[in-house]
Design a protein around this nucleic acid. Sequence first.
DNA 1: ACACCTTCGTTCGAATTTGAACAACAGGAG
DNA 2: CTCCTGTTGTTCAAATTCGAACGAAGGTGT
Lengths: 158, 158
Amino acid sequence: MSSLNEPRWLDQDEMAAWRGFVVASNLLNRRLERQLKDDSGLSHQQYEILVHLSAAPGDSLRMTELADKLVTSKSGLTYQVTQLERMGLVGRRSCPSDVRGVIAELTDQGRETLRQAAPGHVALVRELLIDVLTREQLAVLAEGLGAVSARLRQDDTP
Amino acid sequence: MSSLNEPRWLDQDEMAAWRGFVVASNLLNRRLERQLKDDSGLSHQQYEILVHLSAAPGDSLRMTELADKLVTSKSGLTYQVTQLERMGLVGRRSCPSDVRGVIAELTDQGRETLRQAAPGHVALVRELLIDVLTREQLAVLAEGLGAVSARLRQDDTP
DNA sequence: ACACCTTCGTTCGAATTTGAACAACAGGAG
DNA sequence: CTCCTGTTGTTCAAATTCGAACGAAGGTGT
């Protein structure tokens, strides 16, 4: 499918893009993780759960739906929602239309915690990523990575 | 430093770029992880260790140096090098110029495993990222993320 | 109503990651 | 030389992640 003899290696530009992506991704995650933990006691994943819930209608989402948005495993989500439940930031209730379904819901305290954590997080994302790039670079990045994400989502069903 | 009253939230383009980055990063890692594990029994991290060693002079690197390149914790690297050592892909030897130093070195078997794993990995990176983007998008991505990485590396020392 | 296949969320064990603490050493100022 | 500070790699406990297996329920065709 790909090659009969020699594989197509990455040239200099391609390699630079790929390495840049990997390195930037790792470094960014590292920094955001530290900042959120120090500032609000949340992991990046936990923060993202709160964000997605707060952006959803009714501040609530089905577990599977949430796992898809977060790009994580179902079991991983179960674990993190349990943690957030213990912290009082998220609640579970059963789905009316599906007995199997579980709906994760933002609590008042969760909303408040997010409101308090968001500014610092956004400021750091800005400082480390957004403000480093030009307006044009941002647009290209958004469009390009949007296409990549779409490409990846389409055949994500093994 | 950042704001006296209201934080500067992300506008639509900025949010798209940021979300695209996070989602693409997670999806990509997920896919590469699966492919490498199925194809060669290596994790992405282990693969990257082999790559960095094979790219280094003498197929060897100091532990700290390697940890920096991989953007991982020292303890995490210790663990993974131990795993690779058990698999016979990497060896440890002590540093001549520094008694404390430990040098990780690629074994013949490690070189061979990498040679066998690389084509499939590169092909997937190509399919999921490189070939989805235009030549221009690639150049912008490389330049932009290079700047971001540089920015992140500069004040990474807490 | 019945079998059949898929989906949902959780549980379980194994693997991995992290930061803090640690002992041993390097490098320089005095 | 001698202190003093920073570095190096490892160990440790704790937290997190994943995939496979699971029971329970949805949905469909007959």
